[in-house]
Measured scan of single mutants.
Amino acid sequence: VFVDDHLLEKVLELNAKGEKRLIKTWSRRSTIVPEMVGHTIAVYNGKQHVPVYITENMVGHKLGEFAP
């Protein structure tokens, strides 16, 4: 499973602090992992960042699938 390192670091850091804030990313190719559930990730679609709230059903899919 591929997840960009910088994105995973941000998610794990927020989980350690117990925070839930918006994470901006250009990494549409990253796979959604269970650690991301409950976070809102702003995924770049080529024009703007689209906020995507991550749920359990999204695990295993790519971030780009949810930012048309």
Score class of each variant (00 low, 15 high):
Val50Glu: 14
Val37Met: 14
Tyr44Ala: 05
His61Gln: 12
Val52Pro: 00
His49Phe: 13
Glu65Pro: 04
Gly46Trp: 12
Val11Ser: 01
Leu8Tyr: 10
Ser27His: 04
Val37Trp: 05
Lys24Thr: 10
Glu9Val: 10
Glu65Lys: 13
Ala42Thr: 03
Ile41Leu: 06
Thr55Trp: 10
Val59Arg: 06
Met58Thr: 06
Val1His: 15
Thr40Asp: 07
Leu63Arg: 00
Thr25Ser: 04
Ile23Trp: 01
Ala42Ser: 08
His6Pro: 04
Phe66Ile: 06
Leu12Cys: 11
Gly46Ser: 11
Ile23Arg: 01
Lys24Glu: 09
Phe66Leu: 07
Glu35His: 09
Arg21Phe: 08
Tyr53Gln: 14
Pro34Trp: 11
Gly46Leu: 13
Glu19Ser: 08
Phe66Thr: 03
Val43Ala: 03
Ala42Trp: 03
Val11Glu: 01
Leu8Val: 04
Glu9Asn: 15
Val43Leu: 07
Phe66Asp: 01
Arg28Lys: 09
Thr25Tyr: 02
Gly38Leu: 07
His39Arg: 02
Val11Cys: 06
His6Glu: 14
Ser27Thr: 04
Thr40Cys: 14
Ile41Asn: 00
His6Trp: 15
Gln48Val: 14
Arg21Leu: 10
Lys10Ser: 14
Glu56Gly: 14
Asp5His: 15
Val3Asn: 03
Lys10Cys: 15
Asn15Lys: 03
Lys10Ala: 13
Ala67Trp: 03
Gly38Arg: 06
Glu13Asp: 11
Tyr44His: 10
Val43His: 00
Ala16Ile: 09
Lys24Gly: 02
Val37Gln: 08
Asn15Thr: 04
Leu8Arg: 04
Thr55Met: 13
Gly60Pro: 01
Ile23Asp: 02
Gly18Pro: 02
Val33Pro: 03
Ile23Leu: 08
Ser27Lys: 04
Met58Gly: 02
Tyr53Asp: 11
Glu65Met: 11
Pro68Asn: 07
Ile54Pro: 01
His6Asn: 08
Leu7Glu: 01
Val52Glu: 01
Val33Phe: 05
Thr40Pro: 01
Lys24Arg: 13
Glu35Cys: 14
Ser30Ala: 03
Ala16Glu: 12
Glu56His: 11
His49Asp: 05
Ser30His: 02
Pro34Val: 13
Leu8Phe: 13
Gly38Trp: 07
Glu56Phe: 12
Val11Ile: 14
Tyr44Gln: 04
Ser30Leu: 02
Lys24Trp: 14
Asn45Ala: 08
Val43Arg: 00
His6Met: 14
Val52Ala: 04
Phe2Lys: 06
Trp26Met: 08
Lys17Ile: 11
Val1Met: 09
Asn15Arg: 03
Thr25Leu: 01
Asp4Glu: 08
Ser30Val: 02
Tyr44Phe: 13
His39Phe: 07
Thr25Val: 02
Met58Glu: 06
Phe66Tyr: 11
Val43Met: 03
Val52Thr: 08
Val33Trp: 04
Thr55Leu: 13
Ala42Gln: 04
Ile32Asp: 00
Pro68Asp: 08
Thr31Ala: 14
Pro68Ala: 10
Leu7Tyr: 00
Trp26Gln: 11
Pro51Ile: 11
Trp26Phe: 14
Gly38Ala: 10
Lys20Val: 07
Glu13Ser: 06
Gly64Arg: 12
Tyr44Asn: 05
Val43Trp: 02
Pro51Lys: 12
Phe2Asp: 12
Ile41Cys: 03
Lys10His: 14
Glu65Val: 09
Glu35Gln: 12
Leu14Glu: 02
Ala16Ser: 11
Leu12Ala: 08
Glu13Phe: 06
Thr55His: 14
His49Val: 03
His61Asp: 08
Asn45His: 09
Glu35Tyr: 06
Ala16Gln: 11
Glu9Ile: 13
Asp5Phe: 15
Gly38Val: 00
Thr40Ser: 09
Arg28Tyr: 07
Val1Gln: 14
Gln48Asp: 13
Asn57Met: 10
Gly60Asp: 09
Leu14Val: 03
Glu13Leu: 08
Lys20Arg: 11
Lys17Met: 12
Lys20Asp: 02
Glu19Trp: 03
Ile32Arg: 00
Glu65Trp: 08
Met58His: 13
Arg28Pro: 04
Leu7Ser: 01
Leu12Val: 09
Val33Met: 09
Val52Asp: 00
Phe2Tyr: 11
Ser30Ile: 02
Lys24Ser: 09
Arg28Glu: 04
Lys24Ile: 12
Gly46Lys: 09
Ile23Phe: 03
Val11Gly: 00
Glu35Thr: 09
Asp4Gln: 02
Tyr44Ile: 08
Phe66Ser: 03
Arg29Asn: 09
Glu35Ser: 10
Leu8Met: 10
Leu63Thr: 05
Glu13Ile: 06
Gly46Ala: 10
Gly64His: 10
His61Gly: 08
Pro34Gln: 11
Asn45Phe: 09
Glu19Met: 09
Ile23Cys: 03
Val33Arg: 04
Ala67Gln: 04
Arg21Asp: 10
Gly60Thr: 11
Lys24Asp: 03
Trp26Asp: 13
Thr31Ser: 09
Thr31Pro: 03
Gln48Gly: 10
